[in-house]
Nucleic acid binder design. Structure first.
Lengths: 329, 329
DNA sequence: ACCGTTTTTGGTAGCGGTAACAACAGAATT
DNA sequence: AATTCTGTTGTTACCGCTACCAAAAACGGT
């Protein structure tokens, strides 16, 4: 930048202003500076700028696992909005481990991110304390927690699972099995289970621990769950797969075994993967606002950072989900 | 940091060293400093550190589109290796547009990333020039380009498409259709097409433009391509879907129409999505080393950055792919 | 005890920008 | 014509850390 200043015969401040506050510099000066900038291919050092102004244009995002299709839409929404305002996204994965998450938060704070997005809503007390102390805005967006750190943009896992279970109940299914991902350190799974159980109570159905299962992600798990539940508890008439691609695996298993869906057993899923619409029978599911969550998260974060909209502190935005009834139920 | 120094009764340099080069400080001093650090919850300012040392721990990654399942494995590989060395990942998407990519490169260089990973291998001349000038190591990893910018870690799209087409030919298929994603600004698609055509020549089969199609991503596109090609050119006996999830859509279409696979038409895919193994019939495909690409990319980048391994400049690492024969061919 | 060597600690000058204020025009006001 | 105002440019002091070199302390051998 000094080079530019010298070659343009102006002060360093004028260069800085020509680049960052063009309005505060006369058109001739601006032109002169910008010409030199292009000539020597000068690239501003954003690090120095951030240090000096104590403002950064980096947002930190922590997801449990990057290779999970459900996050990609959210990341896309985030990324697109942030890019428009010149913000960058730093992404890290916590592996569903709050201690790992805390460490990543520490690193991000060290990098002086100007905002933080956390998918998980389970944090160590130290993590919460560090964030509070740093004063930067945070959005949690995997669930709606009882005690948010700051802002929340999400749908309610509890309500969604409740809605789908009620739907199955109303359709006349009486022995509704439930499969989710492991709920250790995964409050989304916990809330889905709670929602399912609340709906059973509402429907006057007896809970049966034999048909409530936890498993890992993947098609194979879904297949395995379906086989297990039908064989161990033959009177089961519906399976609600509240987890990543489990439903597709479960459906394949039925096709393989020749179990009619929904004749022998109904099948419902949690996330609206494109696939569920195209398989046969098409699978009833919940359309969750994954992209919108990213978009709204970015917007509210930017309001706080750029406009200093302090009144948004603690906002909880509950985005709607949609129940999609298809052939499988 | 000054606060820490004062409260510990040592110089600022000692604090800096206790934190970053613990070996160069006596155990007592180190302990004293670290205690104060914990007491007041001091968080080093990584920005200032990077500026001062002109070393950063940030790697920039540019992918065409974040919401594409094929990248997630690569990102995971990258992320896991980088994390172990304390490096952060900044991710941005170019939307398959080289100009957009150039802009992102500029931003990343401004942020003083210490390395760059580009999925695309098509760049504007200005982008190439900026990268060259910056002197930072770069890895391209979506394809093996004729003229790499610097290092390459990838498989060869050409060779993979060639291998699969040859495989179909050897199995006796004679009218092999080919579907890929649009090849404008997508050299991966172009190379796949080239590989397909090279194989046809090798097999002594006549190319037929009516059965070479380009489409967009998605199940629906795959279904549409399958329907179109079978109806317009009934003598077609195989379809090679060299693009994201097209094959699954194509298979569903066959199931819906009652076309036997591979009886009526054989089906081959390009990427080993988990799904392809579980559908019926299971689909032949190419297993591409997506995760390994990320891992190797990170490793080679770190060698350059940390160890200054200049002899690696320009390395081209061609990772193997694997052809998986299943029921559909 | 002495001197050269090694280890540990401290002082200072940046890294490349921005904030805050000072200085100086020319325009507007009285 | 003197005064105030407004808009543009320049000066200086940091932002929080590390590199580099100097100083002090500890060590080892004679």
């Amino acid at each position: 930048m000094r080079d530019v200043a010298v070659r343009a015969g102006v002060s360093i401040m004028t260069v800085s202003r020509a680049l960052n506050e063009p309005g505060k510099v006369s058109p001739e000066m601006r032109e002169k500076v910008l010409r030199v900038v292009r000539e020597i291919g000068y690239l501003p050092n954003h690090l120095a700028g951030s240090l000096s102004s104590s403002r950064s244009t980096t947002i930190g995002l922590i997801v449990p696992s990057i290779d999970n299709s459900i996050y990609t839409q959210t990341v896309k929404g985030l990324s697109e909005v942030l890019k428009r305002s010149g913000f960058q996204l730093m992404i890290a994965e916590s592996g569903y481990d709050p201690n790992e998450e805390e460490e990543l938060i520490t690193i991000f704070l060290s990098q002086r991110v100007s905002g933080l997005v956390l998918h998980s809503t389970e944090h160590t007390p130290q993590a919460a304390e560090k964030i509070r102390k740093s004063g930067i805005p945070v959005v949690e967006n995997g669930n709606i927690p009882a005690e948010p750190l700051d802002m929340v943009v999400s749908f309610s896992n509890h309500d969604a699972a409740y809605a789908m279970t009620m739907h199955l109940g109303r359709l006349g299914y009486r022995k509704i099995a439930f499969a989710s991902l492991y709920s250790v350190h995964n409050d989304r799974s916990k809330d889905r289970l709670d929602g399912y159980q609340a709906a059973l109570r509402q429907l006057g159905l007896d809970p049966d621990p034999r048909i409530v299962l936890e498993t890992e992600r993947g098609l194979a798990s879904g297949a395995e769950v379906m086989a297990r539940v039908v064989q161990s508890v033959p009177e089961v008439d519906a399976l609600f797969c509240a987890g990543d691609v489990l439903a597709v695996g479960a459906l394949f298993e039925c096709q393989k075994r020749g179990w009619q869906v929904p004749g022998r057993i109904a099948l419902a899923s949690f996330d609206d993967v494109d696939l569920l619409r195209h398989v046969s029978p098409s699978v009833s599911t919940l359309r969750l606002p994954r992209y919108d969550i990213g978009e709204r998260t970015a917007r509210i974060l930017l309001s706080r950072i750029i406009d200093g909209a302090e009144h948004l502190r603690g906002s909880v935005i509950d985005l709607k989900f949609e129940l999609i009834q298809r052939e499988s139920t």
